[in-house]
């Protein structure tokens, strides 16, 4: 015997309205996820299933169909909102709210709507069983956190980036030279900049820590022909040319 109630329809309407309000006024990630994810995955589909009048025989069947229907509604929404030029947070909130409330009203007006499937009987969970399940959840979450930490901290390659960019529209007559360290320890560097082979600027003993960025804008002389600028990076510890980059300075 199913559940012959329409309270679920009222709940879906309230859920949809609250989600719409949350998207309109709140930036809270937590609140919007708690409200928004179920409406994309379940609530709207449940309302449409009830409106169509699909009879399901178990909760698992009803949930699976509701998720599938929600996905289909979301996909249809994408095309509808694209046509309306309204693909954005307010558009999505209005779409799901309108579909959910509209479907709930249709479902409520039906005289031959099938009942909801019966809920399975209560399962007796002992304390240790509950504790084991909670412990399992904590272990899995902790393991994921460890994986995230390992992913973000482990680096196979250590290196130093050197770059030189030509003058751009917002900085005419100026080259950009930059340096960023992804080494494992702090290093000292010398940078030499030449324009058409002539020394233009030198920066000695730049101390760059891992993760640190150093960048400068270098003025270039006005010229009727394009010039070739070059930046060389040396390690003073071993007097080695470490990196070399270049760019073209367009004629002015």
């Amino acid at each position: 015997m199913g559940i012959p109630s329409s309270r679920d329809l009222l709940a879906t309407c309230v859920w949809a309205a609250v989600t719409l309000a949350a998207v309109a006024v709140s930036d809270s990630l937590f609140l919007r996820t708690i409200l928004g994810a179920p409406i994309v995955f379940l609530v709207s589909g449940h309302a449409v299933l009830r409106a169509i009048g699909i009879r399901t025989t178990s909760v698992s069947e009803h949930l699976a169909y509701a998720v599938g229907t929600s996905l289909a509604i979301g996909i249809a929404g994408g095309f509808a909102l694209n046509t309306a030029g309204f693909l954005g947070p307010p558009g999505w909130a209005i779409w799901f709210c309108a579909i959910t409330i509209g479907a709930a009203l249709v479902a409520d007006s039906r005289s031959d709507a099938p009942d909801l499937p019966p809920w399975p009987g209560p399962v007796r969970v002992r304390f240790w069983q509950g504790a084991a399940i909670v412990l399992a959840l904590l272990l899995a979450t902790g393991a994921y956190a460890l994986a995230v930490r390992d992913e973000t901290t482990y680096r196979q390659f250590s290196y130093t980036e050197l770059w030189m960019l030509p003058p751009a529209g917002d900085r005419p007559g100026r080259l950009t030279v930059g340096l960023r360290s992804a080494e494992t320890q702090t290093h000292r560097f010398d940078v030499e900049i030449t324009i058409d082979g002539r020394l233009s600027a030198v920066f000695r003993s730049l101390t760059i820590a891992p993760g640190e960025t150093w960048a400068r804008q270098i003025p270039v002389p006005v010229s009727a022909t394009s010039q070739r600028a070059e930046a060389r990076l040396y390690r003073p510890d071993d007097h080695r040319l470490y990196r070399s980059v270049s760019t073209l300075v367009p004629r002015t």
Binding site: Q129, A132, A136, L139, A140, A143, Y144, A147
Partner: peptide, 27 residues
């Protein structure tokens, strides 16, 4: 529920081993 609880715990330990395997693999 005995089986479900025990298998949840086993699965969680298994996942911990999998994460450790990836960490060791990176190195």
């Amino acid at each position: 529920c005995e089986w479900i609880a025990a298998l949840c715990l086993t699965a969680a330990m298994a996942l911990l081993l999998v994460v450790a395997g990836h960490a060791a693999g990176r190195r």
